[in-house]
């Protein structure tokens, strides 16, 4: 019984982080048509920056607020420069999609290695609420509970933003039919850039949250990119609710395998998406 409860708690926490990471990737692909394989690098940059901030005496929660605009600006600037040039230069939408993915691979090279030149490759960390609460025979770290609460809050806020705000509605319109949305007078280019920025920002939030409960290092990005890719495919490309569900599923799978056979968890992840893709070729919530 305790184990089951443990599995649920761990699964919720992992799932919350995974969902947060993948929503950004899903948005970037859904609207901006960029499969951002450098997504994890934004997580890494935010995590390392948080560590730097905390070492300067800034509270981690304040660092979270600082990292949001920073990562947003990086993502936004990248989109209005190189991705826009790429869009002009690639002839077709399909060519743009594949070129954009490769371009992100180049970004991955650059970001991860510049970070390594600056910060080295040792794992680093700081102490934040490193205590626990007991609940029905289980103990859970407080920092993880805080992280889970923030992750859930951000996810809900983001979903509300997409559903009810004016900009959110434009984003959804642009993701469904960019041409028609453009005809209706929306600035599609700007919306895409904002989406890419928001995607980067969500990754940044995730990065800061991860640094609150675990050590971080400059090589951590790729692992999270892989997780995000799996989740996004699981949930369906471009579907925000799909990412949330996918993230939770993966979190629970990871948690269950963490208790049974940790070394098989990656195998399980990939088996799940391989099987799912065979049954539903566009993911759970894919259109």
């Amino acid at each position: 019984m305790t184990t089951v409860l443990n599995i649920i708690i761990t699964g919720l926490i992992m799932g919350g982080i995974y969902a947060l990471i993948s929503m950004g990737l899903s948005l970037q692909y859904g609207v901006a048509k960029i499969l951002n394989v450098s997504h994890g690098e934004f997580i890494m940059i935010a995590a390392m920056l948080t560590w730097v901030f905390v070492n300067r005496g800034i509270h981690p929660l304040l660092a979270l607020v600082l990292c949001c605009p920073l990562t947003f600006i990086i993502g936004f600037l990248l989109h209005i420069t190189i991705f826009r040039w790429l869009n002009i230069n690639s002839g077709t939408a399909a060519a743009y999609e594949s070129n954009a993915m490769l371009l992100c691979f180049g970004l991955y090279f650059i970001f991860s290695n510049i970070a390594m030149q600056i910060w080295g490759s040792n794992p680093v960390g700081y102490q934040f609420l490193n205590r626990s609460v007991a609940f029905a025979g289980t103990v859970t770290a407080i920092n993880k509970i805080v992280v889970l609460i923030i992750a859930v809050a951000v996810s809900i806020l983001f979903y509300l933003f997409l559903t009810y705000s004016r900009l959110g509605k434009s984003i959804r319109a642009a993701s469904q039919d960019p041409v028609a949305a453009g005809m209706l007078g929306m600035n599609i280019k700007m919306i895409m850039a904002i989406c890419f920025g928001i995607g980067a920002m969500l990754a940044g939030i995730a990065g800061t949250l991860i640094s609150m409960y675990s050590q971080v290092d400059t090589g951590m990005g790729m692992g999270y990119t892989m997780i995000a890719l799996i989740v996004v495919v699981l949930g369906g490309m471009g579907s925000i609710p799909g990412s949330m569900i996918g993230g939770l599923i993966l979190g629970f799978v990871g948690s269950i395998f963490g208790y049974i056979e940790p070394s098989l968890s990656m195998v399980a992840y990939y088996l799940i998406i391989l099987v799912l893709l065979l049954v539903k070729p566009k993911g759970l919530m894919g259109r």
Partner: peptide, 16 residues
């Protein structure tokens, strides 16, 4: 890796 990444980006953006 950094130079390689830059070359990659330049070639993809300007020589799609």
């Amino acid at each position: 890796m950094i130079i390689f990444g830059v070359v990659m980006i330049i070639s993809i953006v300007f020589l799609p």
